[in-house]
Simulated scan of single mutants.
Amino acid sequence: MRERVLGNTVVVLATTALLVGAVGCTGAEDDKDGGKEKAEAVSCTYAWSDIEREQKLTGLSDPITLKKKTDSVSAPIASINGVHYKPHMTSTAPGVRAADAIKALGRHLRTAEPLADPSEAAVPDETGAGYELHAGNLQGSYYAWTYVGLVEADFTYSCAGDGDVEPVKGHVLTWDGVGQGFLSCGDPVEDGDLGTPDAAARSAARKLCPADSPAAKTA
């Protein structure tokens, strides 16, 4: 599984240009020698806007209380009812494939690994997950959770020289990683990647830690 910690919402407006020869984005002209039509590649562009990247909570353990010191702990993590994410695209025209749009977004964001495409299963799955940790001197209250690094964006797809074809507008939802966490309620919730709050950890701490604990107070 791809695991990355993402920060909260970042809004970006940018353009990614591609050179393609796909249906709906090709031009044709008469071949004077043979009288046949030939397709010529045209420059097609994805203009991205309202890009949002946020870590979303997908599963929670029960509150974990270790009354005696131990060097290991395991905890089942149940999926949150009604919370499921599936890579998809909504568009005003059928000519743009969801997988192509998501790949273009990944290239624009320069993600370390490809973004999840529509062939991947929804997360979280129905079976939930589990967490296991082997470390010394574990004692007190803890919490465990799972998350998905959600990525959403609007786009306008247009092809230069493609006659009177109107630009296609759409929206994609995908993710660049899933993961899990385990922390002590006795520690404040620290900021995550790039100095931005770890949204999933904060939400988990508020739900699972005692109200007077450092984690709950800083969440």
Rank of each mutant, 00 (worst) to 15 (best):
P188G: 08
E190I: 14
V151G: 11
G130R: 14
Y131M: 15
S158V: 05
D212A: 13
A104F: 06
L115F: 04
G128Y: 07
G149R: 09
F155N: 05
D187G: 09
D117R: 07
A153K: 09
L109C: 04
R202W: 05
E113C: 01
D154I: 04
G163C: 05
V165L: 03
E120F: 06
V123W: 02
P214F: 09
P188W: 08
G179N: 03
P214V: 12
I102Q: 06
T92C: 00
A93Y: 01
V178E: 06
W145T: 06
A112I: 06
G170S: 05
A199D: 04
P124R: 07
L194W: 10
R107Y: 02
I102T: 10
L138T: 13
R107T: 12
L105Y: 03
A200H: 04
D154K: 07
L109A: 02
S91W: 02
E166L: 07
P210V: 13
G186R: 14
D212G: 09
D198P: 03
R202V: 08
K169L: 00
D164P: 02
L208N: 11
Q180H: 05
D187A: 15
T146M: 05
N137I: 09
A204Q: 06
W145F: 13
C185R: 10
A129E: 01
P118D: 02
A101L: 05
A101S: 14
A122M: 12
S184Y: 15
G163P: 00
V178P: 00
C185L: 10
A211Q: 10
G163L: 12
H108R: 14
S119T: 15
S158F: 06
H108Y: 10
G181T: 11
L173T: 15
A153S: 13
Y131K: 15
C159F: 04
A200Q: 06
A122H: 01
